[in-house]
Each structure stands twice: as structure tokens, then as C-alpha cells.
Design a protein around this nucleic acid. Structure first.
Lengths: 209, 209
DNA sequence: TGGGCAACCGAACGATCGTTAGTTTACCTA
DNA sequence: TAGGTAAACTAACGATCGTTCGGTTGCCCA
């Protein structure tokens, strides 16, 4: 497949993509209202006015950052469905690994607190974020567990609860790392690798027959 | 009058307390930078200039909101230690009930995303919030579990992991409710009571010998 | 009874916000 | 080589930001 028909405008315009990348970094660092157009245009290396040649407004820019930010995460989720060679337990463990990765390390997950910041003035963004990103994560998790149930590996859980237990710690970890980023000893405070392994064990236990 | 005495002296000035209450409501609703001094003074019912009779700055006001916001939550945590009549499992269940309550319903917990918003420009607030609120929650949880271990009710857990599993879902639930507050069907999306019960079972299971 | 003072006010401060108007530059193509 | 156009520029816009100044009010107590 050489070209995907559903290519968005970003892939067509490298300058736009470059701006998105720089802007995302700033939004992650300083939040939405903490990032001024002066900061932004300086980081890009153009004057403020030139920015408006590429984006209609700061709001549109941020929305684009979010949408393009979770695109790779969605790809990673899609890739999960084609791991047929693993046991169902290992598929689930691998899925949780991926969820940690996309939430703690990717732009999409790390932008969540910033989306929360603007959610009141951009409710349509929250809705889109939920429908196109959060809900997809949930569906992916459910599909993997359902496969395991079908062959008798798992018991059927309360999916709302499963989601609560799986995503809760991951999202909070991501939020905490942002929130306490300036504190010394951050790595010891949140030993991600160890927490992840223990977390996976607990989730598997909760699904055991 | 703003003075050099400790910010968290609550009982000093009823007018100050009244302003704190109104300000907290606004900060919860619209975030830190989303709340202007114009909004605030209008909500209080005084002119902007008069506000500065009570607080030195917007930053000091917000810090006071946070500090006084978690004071009742700390009281609730302290009260947990004197529940000697319950079994250790029930004490833990009750503790988790309290954690849900103070995180999802109290100002302290609900202000967390707002603290995250300003954490870069007020790192000392993040630090204080962690030391005086987050760490206290953690210590309380640990003390209760240690009591259970001493009488053979629980096995000794990885406390970092326990904290991850207990607080993660609670904080994320609180964040989600703020983030998706404008979405229809919020209550069905996050059936708090059911999630809480299932969550408690899983935590207890993880501590079983 | 009058001095002190907390609480309030109108007015304005300088700074910064996101955005726009109008113009110039640089490059591609006809 | 002329012309069109995308992308950059300078300059400034009106609005709003948090904050301060200087003055007025009204209550408490000496």
C-alpha cells in the first residue's frame, strides 16, 4: 500500500508538520495558556504573524497537535490485533506494555493534562479525544480479553472495572510525572518498569478463572 | 491582610475564608489561567483592587486554596487511624472509601489537574502538595497495611506498587470526570460506586496471603 | 469625639495576549 | 523574463492580563 487515502493535511505539508512537532513540545512543557504565540514563533524561528500563514489560530494548532499526536498511538494499538503467535496472557501483557508506552512516553498520553486544562473552552476536543483515542484503547483491551475468554483463558470481567484498573494507574503515573517533574528523585519516586510488571500481574490475576 | 505568617492558618479571617471558597470554586471550574481577577472579584462582589487587601497576589490565593483545600482531607485521613473496632480488611476497605471520597469529591483531589497546570511555574507548590498531601495518603495506607501484616491478615506488598494500584484508578477517575465533564452520559461512563467496590476487592486480593 | 485603620473604590498602570493589515521576499513556472 | 504565489516580514491592533496608586468610607476604641 503505497499511499493511504485517509492521509491528513499534515502529511502533505512538511512545514506544518514541523510546526506541530515544535508546538507539541511547548504545550507539553508549559501547558496551553503557558505557551504564548511569542514563545511559539520564536521556537519555530519565524515572526508571530508568519505563523498564521500555516494555522488559523492557536486553538486550531492545539487541536491539530492532539489529533496528530495520538495517530501513532492508534497505529500501535492496531498492531496489537495481529499478535496471534502469543498466548492470550502474553497478548494481554504485551497490550499493557503498549498502553504504558503510549500513555507515559507518547505525546498523546502526555498531552492529557493539557487537554484537561482546555476542556472547558474546547469541549468538542475532549469529546473527540475520548471517541477517537480513549474509547479505542478500551475497545482494543476488550477485544483481547474477549479472545482469551473464548478459548477459556480468562473469566469475563466487569469491563468498566477492568478499564478502571488497567488505565487508572497508567494515566496517574503519566500525570504524576508531569506534575512532579521538577522534584528531585523523580525516577525513584516512580520506578516505572517495576510498577508496570507488578501491575500486569495484578490485572492477570483479576482475570484468572 | 497579607502578612508573613503561615499561609495555612485557616481560622484567622472569615472574609479570607469566604474568598478562598469562592476562588476554589472558580479554579475548579475554569482552571488557573482561565480564572481572571475580573471574574474572581465579580464573583466575590468587590472591585478588583479590593481583592488585594486580602491576598498579596493571584498566586498566593491559589496556593492558599490548595493548602486549605486539603486540610479537611487530612483530617479524614487522621480519623482513619482510630478505627480499631474493624477487622483489618474492613479498615482497608474503609480507607479506600475515604480515599475515593477525598479525591473525587473534595476540593483537594479535584484541584490536582489545576496544580498540574501551574506546576511548572510554581514548583514549590507541587512539592508542598506532594509532601503534605500525597505522601500523607501514602503513609496512612502503609500504616493500615502494616497493622494487618503484624497480625497475619496481609502479606507485605511492594508499597510503590500498592500505591500505584490503589491511587492510580482513583486519581484517573477524578481527572476523567473533570476532563469529560461536558460530555453527555457522564454518570454511566463512570459508575463510581460500582468501580469502587470492584477496585477494593482487587486490592484486597493483591494483599491476600 | 476624634484618630486610626481595615475595607472598599475609581482609575489607570505597563505588559502581554492572540490576531490582523499591508508589504516584501524568494522561488517556480509559463 | 514576466508573473503568480507561498511564505516570510514590520507594525500595530484592541483586548485583557495582574497589579498598583491614591483617595473615600465607616466602624472601633481611646
Amino acid at each position: 500500500m503505497a499511499s493511504d487515502e485517509k492521509i491528513n493535511e499534515v502529511a502533505m505539508d512538511p512545514r506544518r508538520a514541523e510546526i506541530l512537532q515544535i508546538a507539541t513540545k511547548l504545550f507539553l512543557d508549559k501547558g496551553f495558556s503557558g505557551t504564548s504565540m511569542a514563545d511559539l514563533s520564536e521556537a519555530i524561528g519565524i515572526k508571530k504573524a508568519s505563523f498564521y500563514h500555516h494555522f488559523r489560530s492557536k486553538d486550531e494548532l492545539f487541536i491539530s497537535c492532539v489529533i496528530t499526536g495520538y495517530a501513532p498511538a492508534l497505529d500501535a494499538l492496531r498492531a496489537l490485533k495481529s499478535a496471534e503467535d502469543l498466548s492470550h496472557e502474553d497478548r494481554l501483557r504485551h497490550a499493557i506494555d503498549v498502553l504504558y508506552d503510549i500513555t507515559v512516553n507518547s505525546d498523546a498520553g502526555r498531552l492529557s493534562p493539557v487537554i484537561a486544562e482546555v476542556s472547558r473552552k474546547m469541549p468538542e476536543l475532549s469529546q473527540r479525544f475520548y471517541a477517537e483515542y480513549i474509547a479505542v484503547q478500551r475497545q482494543t483491551l476488550e477485544a483481547i480479553v474477549e479472545d482469551g475468554i473464548a478459548v477459556g483463558s480468562f473469566k469475563r470481567p466487569d469491563y468498566d472495572l477492568l478499564y478502571h484498573i488497567v488505565f487508572g494507574p497508567i494515566v496517574t503515573l503519566s500525570l504524576s510525572k508531569e506534575m512532579f517533574a521538577e522534584m528531585p528523585g523523580l525516577e525513584q519516586m516512580f520506578p516505572v518498569a517495576r510498577l508496570k510488571e507488578g501491575h500486569k500481574d495484578i490485572v492477570i490475576d483479576a482475570l484468572r478463572l
